[in-house]
Design a protein around this nucleic acid. Structure first.
Length: 924
RNA sequence: AGGCGCGUAGCUCAGUGGUUAGAGCACUUGCUUGACAUGCAAGGGGUCGGUGGUUCAACUCCACUCGUGCCUACCA
């Protein structure tokens, strides 16, 4: 074996073998266990969030596979309508072409081409991080089968009246020219203005002060005003209700109405009402039968419904013009600075317009009922539990879901119109004709629009398994076991899967939803492509030079103007680029970071730490192999009369506890704790103590050799299996070397069983005895360390005040002590014997003494003892306080009181011994 | 406006109504000890955001408060 762990070559080879051998496919035996991958964008790349969630899903899958489950991790990708279409359009733009010029057919061909070209990227990346997905079952949301499911669902919902078409005010992205759903709109507070305009009363055309003042943040929409509203109880305006005003610039006469919606306290208490361009105004318009005047084109320029002077201006120009014109007419009263909430499309960043169009909607309220119940009743459990609240919050206020998009890339809506505009829904045109008995002479044209991407994603848990066919896979794996995803798509995806799953299969799509935190950068910022702060997980695995990293971040940026800023940040954060850490180190990091928090700051130092951990494991294995490989003296099964030594019994017991802890933590999704338990066992118990204790045991002629070799190998082998779900590559590599020694058979660790606690029974006695050994060794090391005694200098030790137990253990383990504490000799003093000047450590009541001659500085030793005494004294006082408290004595449980008494006695004795020793020092 | 979360060592984070509140990184000191310097050994560092309450006992439970973050929502 190499002296240090070299991940690159091993990882590639391992994965290839696993995949070629078909190890990722469900075994066909055992309880089914299934995870549906949240399908990533087919043309996207793997980011840190994916890598994180995939690590968790893979760990779960591998864990359950090793627990004997029939495990399926279902892979696949999503067509990501808007995102993908935008990318291809941008490519066309570079070549001087446009979507419109190309036409629908040709454009879609380009998209498919692009999908083919880039669709493999993300799958390759998934292989690099070790995802044990069943590639043979890979699906794409626009596959034939999945598309069939989409059509089927659409039809059934339509027939039940749960899908309808209507003219509604929707969120319109004037750059992308499509409707978007509420969820695709990001509302942020931005700086703006509040303009105050005078609207002259129509009856008082000649009068000088006959006007109302309205306040608005969007002056340009006044061209579409159809009323002014005041609060019905507002005394200031009561007498004006029912009258009209003459709308400036347009000359239209519009009514003054009264409506509760108006807040008399805000602005002037008068609101201009533009029903075609504001969601509130729309509703007020409905209540008061106001006309809706749409003044925008689909690009948000002024259309022909506005006065000629404004036609063709885009909304910003129009705003300036309207304000200028009103000003020159004397209608501009004031402009105040004002913060307002601006809705922007999450893809384009453009300000979204409420826009009146024909769209398709899902009546979400009806689907929401059962979906709420499923979580309330516990059929679906959120982990951490609290996310259920977020889910309920949204579900109880759910709005109808606008599912049509004015895009080309996606599932085309299975609806056809005749020339009269009548709509027919069916599987295809022929089906529509036969279903509705339409003759051949009637011309039908299919709806131009496609469905929201999330519509097909909502079906993912069952469409990937073959629905609407009743496939064996569906039968076996549905409902799936757990969904692993981020809280940012609870509404987008989780809720909709639950609604659709219940509706079409009658069962929940998954039993548990594990919500992961969001990976943020070192400053707590969201790693976002638009900001340019993204780390490619593969760069952490393979490493990358600084210049290459800078170049990489600069390409494909969404906001090129930030380039120099990002470059500076990159150079500062990674002055030497990123070193190669390997997949396992990255995976261990993600696992260790997966606590209950919702934000996860990604810290490069931790990856380095876990890379070191991998190296530690590697070297432990190297040691084990060096000591077991060379000769074949290690029996796979110990002879009946072979006696395990104390360290053997101890490490096996600790292994058992670790396995048990890891199992518990996997069941409760506390991956951070699982990682921690394994890390601590590996480093602090197996390496720091057991391997060290094995060194004396392996010396020539020591009767413990066989048991030690056996334990070294079998514990390592079990440790590898318990680590495998988290760090699959290194464990596979080492396991293949260690397994033959322990007699384990099989070609891959990933098909082995997870270690069983029963094979490593708890041994309380061994743990107690080893603790004694540790205390002894630590005592000596403490003196050595604090007194600056060279580590290789062997020390003579005197002991005093030994209990029977101390004597017993000392006799049994003198050799181990001597080696680990570097002891030259041990001599027991009688209790009344006066020791020479010494440094002292305590192990229980036993004094461990190191003669000072030539070794120890009296002042330093005094300081050290005083520090220990003061600490003990503080503890004693605290304990004494409790014991002197009558109410504590009478109210606390007896065992707590007893414990406190024991503590008191121990501290008391410790202090006495330290004082005694200090007095001795004084006499020197 | 409503909902949710966070505040513990210099940094990133665990933690439990009852051991002396822990880990990693960073820091100090000493070590090329035959697995590992990606290492070993020893050490320093915290009034657990603040106030009040419940309790024999609070870092932990409750109330208020300060700071901070996220989500949802139609205030022109």
């Amino acid at each position: 074996m190499e002296k240090t762990y070299q991940p690159a070559e091993i990882e590639k080879r391992c994965y290839q073998e696993w995949e070629d051998s078909g190890y990722f496919a469900p075994s066909g035996r055992g309880e089914p266990y299934c995870i549906m991958i949240p399908p990533p964008n087919v043309t996207g790349t793997l980011h840190m969030g994916h890598a994180f969630q995939h690590t968790i899903m893979d760990a779960l899958t591998r864990y359950h596979r090793m627990q004997g489950n029939n495990a399926l991790w279902q892979p696949g990708t999503d067509h990501a309508g808007i995102a993908t279409q935008m990318v291809v359009e941008r490519q066309l733009e570079v070549q001087g072409e446009s979507r419109a010029e190309l036409g629908r057919e040709a454009f879609l061909e380009k998209v498919w081409e692009w999908k083919k070209q880039s669709g493999n990227t993300i799958c390759k990346q998934m292989r690099r991080i070790g995802d044990s997905v069943d590639w043979s079952r890979e699906r794409f949301t626009m596959d034939e089968g999945l598309s069939k499911a989409v059509t089927e669902v659409f039809l059934r919902l339509y027939e039940e009246g749960l899908i309808y078409r209507g003219t509604r005010l929707v969120n319109w992205d004037p750059v992308l020219h499509t409707a978007v759903s509420d969820l695709e709109v990001i509302s942020r507070e931005e700086d703006g203005h509040l303009w105050h305009f005078r609207y002259p009363l129509a009856q008082d055309d000649s009068g000088s002060d006959g006007y109302l003042v309205v306040a608005t943040t969007r002056p340009e929409t006044m061209l579409g005003d159809t009323a002014v509203a005041v609060h019905p109880d507002d005394e200031r305006y009561k007498k004006l209700v029912g009258k009209t005003i003459r709308l400036p610039l347009t000359g239209r006469e519009i009514p003054i109405i009264a409506d509760d919606y108006v807040d008399p306290e805000f602005g002037t208490g008068c609101v201009k009402i533009t029903p075609a361009h504001d969601f509130n105004d729309y509703e007020i318009g409905q209540r008061h039968n106001l006309p809706q005047i749409n003044i925008f084109t689909d690009s948000a320029s002024i259309n022909d419904n506005a006065p000629e002077a404004y036609r063709g201006l885009d909304r910003n120009e129009a705003r300036k013009q309207v304000v200028a014109d009103l000003d020159s007419l004397g209608f501009l009263e004031a402009i105040d600075d004002h913060k307002l909430v601006v809705p922007r499309g999450d893809r384009s960043g453009a300000i979204v317009e409420p826009f009146l169009t024909d769209q398709w909607f899902v009546k979400a309220t009806e689907l929401a009922g059962p979906a709420i119940k499923a979580v309330e009743s516990g059929q679906i459990r959120f982990v951490p539990e609290n996310w259920a609240k977020t889910y309920f919050e949204w579900m109880h206020n759910i709005q109808d879901w606008c599912i049509s998009r004015q895009l080309w890339w996606g599932h085309r809506i299975p609806a056809w119109f005749d020339e009269a505009g009548e709509v027919y829904v069916g599987y295809d045109e022929a089906d529509v004709r036969s279903r509705h008995k339409l003759g051949d002479r009637i011309t039908l044209r299919q709806d131009e629009d496609v469905l929201d991407t999330w519509f097909s994603s909502a079906l993912w848990p069952f469409s990937t398994l073959g629905w609407p066919e009743k496939t064996p896979e569906l039968e076996t794996f549905y409902p799936t076991s757990v969904l692993v995803t981020g809280f940012d798509i609870i509404f987008f995806w989780v809720a909709r899967m639950i609604m659709m799953g219940l509706k079409f299969t009658g069962e929940v799509p998954f039993r548990e939803v594990y919500i992961t935190g969001l990976i943020r950068d070192q400053d707590g910022q969201k790693m976002s492509k638009s900001k340019g702060y993204v780390i490619d997980p593969l760069d952490l695995i393979d490493g990358i030079e600084l210049e290459a990293l800078v170049k990489k971040q600069a390409t494909g940026m969404m906001q090129p103007q930030l380039r120099s800023k990002i470059e500076r940040a990159t150079r500062k954060q990674f002055p030497d680029g990123i070193p190669e850490f390997g997949t396992d180190a990255l995976r261990f990091t993600f696992t260790a970071l997966a606590s209950t928090g919702r934000d996860i700051r990604f810290d490069l130092n931790r990856v380095e730490g876990y890379r070191n951990f991998c190296n530690k494991l590697w070297n432990a294995a190297r040691y084990v192999l060096m000591n077991t490989d060379a000769d074949s003296t290690v029996p796979a099964v110990l002879k009946d009369d072979t006696v395990l030594s104390l360290p053997d019994r101890w490490i096996r017991s600790r292994m058992g506890r670790t396995i048990s802890a890891v199992q518990g933590h996997f069941e409760t999704y506390r991956f951070d704790l699982a990682a921690k338990a394994l890390y601590e066992f590996t480093w602090n118990e197996y390496c720091d103590w057991y391997l060290e204790l094995s060194k004396p045991a392996l010396q020539d002629g020591n009767p413990e050799q066989a048991a030690t070799r056996h334990t070294l190998a079998t514990v390592l082998e079990a440790l590898l299996r318990s680590l495998h779900p988290i760090v699959p590559f290194i464990t596979e590599e080492i396991w293949n070397k260690v397994a033959p020694i322990t007699g384990a058979t099989g070609t891959s660790i990933m098909l082995q069983n997870f270690p069983a606690v029963a094979d490593f029974p708890i041994d309380e006695q061994a743990e107690i005895e080893l603790k004694w050994l540790q205390a002894f060794i630590l005592g000596v090391r403490q003196i050595r360390g604090e007194m600056d005694i060279a580590p290789n200098r062997e020390l003579p030790i005197l002991l005093q005040n030994l209990s029977e137990n101390d004597r017993c253990l000392l006799a049994a383990h003198a050799d181990r002590l001597a080696q680990l504490a570097r002891i030259e000799s041990i001599k027991i003093l009688e209790n009344d014997e006066e020791p020479p000047p010494c440094a002292m450590a305590l192990s229980g009541s036993m004094k461990i003494l190191v003669p000072m001659a030539g070794l120890i500085d009296v002042a330093a030793e005094r300081q050290r003892l005083e520090k220990n005494r003061d600490r003990a004294h503080n503890n004693l006082k605290r304990t004494q306080g409790k014991l002197n408290n009558e109410r504590f004595m009478s109210n606390a449980p007896a065992e707590v009181v007893d414990k406190e008494r024991e503590k008191f006695a121990a501290f008391d004795q410790e202090i006495a011994q330290l004082n005694e020793q200090l007095e001795r020092l004084d006499q020197l």
